[in-house]
Design a protein around this nucleic acid. Structure first.
Length: 202
DNA sequence: CCACGGATTGGCT
DNA sequence: GCCAATCCGTGGA
């Protein structure tokens, strides 16, 4: 992969597309959180698409609420939600106003600020595997220190953003059913990079 | 009002 | 493999 400084930030055009197109397109891109003194960054290796119109598993399916209102904006925002009373998960809002579409980020391969992310995830001094830092949606938010304060952040800004990178070829992408849901469970809307060790589950 | 379960994770049996 | 953690949205009484 190129140096991060050589990569361009994804622009609004990327996000205002169909949710499945954006989901697949996000694979291989570099998710970045620029904190005061450190850059946290990693390659997106696993995602799931959620559609507010035809997908009962989407938070937006039953209409706008305080929790999910960010999902109904135009694409290009970060949607963060709190679940199981314990974890945060982060999503990329896609498409047009009031569609309620978003892509859940489920797996990230750490690239920069790895020691900081490990510190966010594990007790100081404990042994860990780099593969286990951000191989799951809750783990990603812990590693990147993302919470409800970051809900609605503009991804075209300078705080949390995504860098363009080489497109993952179609034959390197695995498409399967989504994980951990019971409604609309058969939709093949999970995408991950084949044989990548930072995917949450096989 | 109350009960239930969720786009999860990690610890313990 | 099982289950607690622990908040909040949803649905039924």
């Amino acid at each position: 992969m190129s140096e991060l400084s050589n990569l361009n930030k994804l622009t609004i055009d990327f996000y205002r597309k169909d949710v499945l197109t954006v989901a697949e397109g996000l694979l291989g891109k570099i998710f970045v959180k620029a904190e005061k003194n450190v850059i946290l960054a990693g390659k997106i290796v696993e995602v799931e698409a959620y559609n507010g119109v035809i997908d009962e598993a989407a938070h937006s399916f039953r209409g706008k609420t305080k929790r999910n209102e960010v999902m109904f904006n135009k694409g290009g925002l970060l949607y963060v939600y709190f679940t199981y009373g314990v974890h945060y998960c982060c999503n990329v809002v896609t498409g047009e106003q009031d569609e309620g579409n978003a892509v859940l980020i489920r797996g990230i391969e750490p690239v920069s600020g790895i020691d900081i992310m490990a510190g966010n995830r594990f007790k100081k001094g404990s042994d860990f595997k780099i593969e286990n830092i951000a191989n799951g949606p809750g783990k990603i938010c812990k590693a990147f220190n993302i919470n409800l304060l970051d809900n609605g952040v503009d991804l075209t800004g300078d705080y949390i953003y995504i860098l363009d990178n080489v497109k993952i070829p179609e034959n390197r992408i695995v498409k399967t059913k989504r994980i951990g849901i019971t409604k609309s469970a058969d939709l093949p809307w999970r995408f991950y990079i084949k044989e990548n060790g930072f995917v949450s589950k096989k």
